[in-house]
Design a binder for these strands. Structure first.
Lengths: 240, 240
DNA sequence: CCGCGACAGATGCTATAGCAGCGTTGCTAT
DNA sequence: ATAGCAACGCTGCTATAGCATCTGTCGCGG
């Protein structure tokens, strides 16, 4: 026997309709089912979800607090539409938050975790032109190591909240990466640098390097999305 | 005449009961009307607030999302009780967020704003042993300059959310400052240093200095609250 | 005296109904 | 034809009632 059976995560009771509505609408916003700027109503959504307006209302209020829904007037709710500036600000803030999380993780990552991350980086570097899904999976695994080591649920919640707001455009842009292998190479180099910084055990370096690459990723993302835009984003720049 | 009448902020229509309940409960948590760890129920609060359970329910869900209320079981809601560790983590995260906001503000603060901040610092330095309320008012004014210059509502929202969670203990601790003039002196010196950093126009310096003082403030706060605790907080330290 | 089971109260969740405010539409009067 | 007004409908908000589930207690049996 390999020891006592480990604790399994407690089975979640079936979520409430309000929770399901929350996730469904959130998902709908992320996937584009609800376009940015589109008006939504309690009764309309309730009909589409085959529930009463009550749980829908709750979901909308939470989404409003999340910044995904806004009330343009007293009786008009709309899916938030981010201006290029606010989206930039959003992604920049997210980048800084994730860099901060990496800082928290610096002193707590053990050798085993660093080795796992090295394996991920190697796998990424072995064949830079893999599928997007594969890249995303590995990158997420890399981030998860940092997340777990940091062990700061408060910060994690903030990151989740911020990153989600730009998710739709982000995902579309990630798909474009298929046509920009140099972008992928850039990001992979970022992972390499971050890992090296973590190995140095210096929190300042970790946060600086992480932030640098995350911000560069944001710039790539936005210029990729909107090629007509000027590449110079020194305005409000987050890195020195 | 001194020009056309400026736009006044639009008068908010009377807030909904749900909003009022949200603020009332939030306030109750901050002021200690609802103790940390205390159980709350929809119907109980509804009776105390003289409204129906519906708006109270909504308020509770939002507070739950804020991290002020937690569900300990499927049918038991409690006011969140922060462990010393999680409180420390919370305040540290808040400190880093505010430092980040200061970074955003660095390039956007005009001379007039810097002069106003200098006046505040001078006023603080003139008589270090003023009342707590006076100190808080001035410090808030100082922060507001940074906040306005940064102009990052997303980040601002995160800061609001995080800072509020530790507010109750924070306020009690601030009251203790009355008996610790050296703490006040320390903080005032912090404001001086931050202002000097802002004048240097170097974002890295600004963020570093701001974070340094904010973290020091957190340490003072916690050791002040719990004198038995070891002063060495290098564990999870946010500054190099 | 201890244990187990049933009943009653409490609690969160959902549906429904009705209210008040606002916008729109269509009609009417000039 | 156009301007004004009135009625209708849409929308968010609140209250209430009922349901399902859990908890705590009381009583009965061993």
């Amino acid at each position: 026997m390999s020891g006592a059976a480990p604790d399994l995560p407690a089975l979640q009771r079936a979520q409430s309709l309000a929770d399901q509505a929350y996730q469904a609408i959130r998902e709908g916003i992320a996937t584009g089912t609800f376009a940015a700027g589109e008006r939504v109503t309690e009764r309309g959504l309730a009909a589409r979800l085959h529930v009463s307006p009550t749980p829908v209302r709750e979901a909308l209020r939470r989404l409003e607090q999340d910044g995904l829904i806004e009330r343009v007037s007293a009786r008009e709710l709309r899916v938030v539409e981010h201006s290029p500036e606010s989206l930039h600000e959003l992604l920049l803030t997210g980048a800084a938050l994730r860099a901060l999380e990496a800082r928290f993780a610096t002193s707590k990552l053990d050798e085993a975790a660093l080795d796992r991350m090295a394996a991920i980086v190697d796998e990424l570097g072995a064949d830079p032109v893999r599928t997007i899904a594969e890249y995303l999976r590995l990158a997420r695994e890399f981030d998860r190591e940092i997340e777990q080591a940091a062990g700061n649920p408060t910060l994690r919640g903030l990151i989740q909240s911020v990153t989600f707001m730009g998710q739709e455009r982000r995902m579309r842009s990630i798909e474009n990466m298929r046509f920009h292998p140099d972008v992928a190479a850039h990001r992979i180099q970022g992972h390499r640098d971050i890992l090296a910084a973590l190995r140095s055990r210096d929190p300042d370096t970790v946060e600086r390097i992480f932030r640098h690459h995350a911000v560069a990723g944001v710039d790539l993302l936005l210029t990729d999305l909107d090629p007509t835009q000027d590449a110079d984003r020194s305005q409000g720049r987050i890195t020195g």
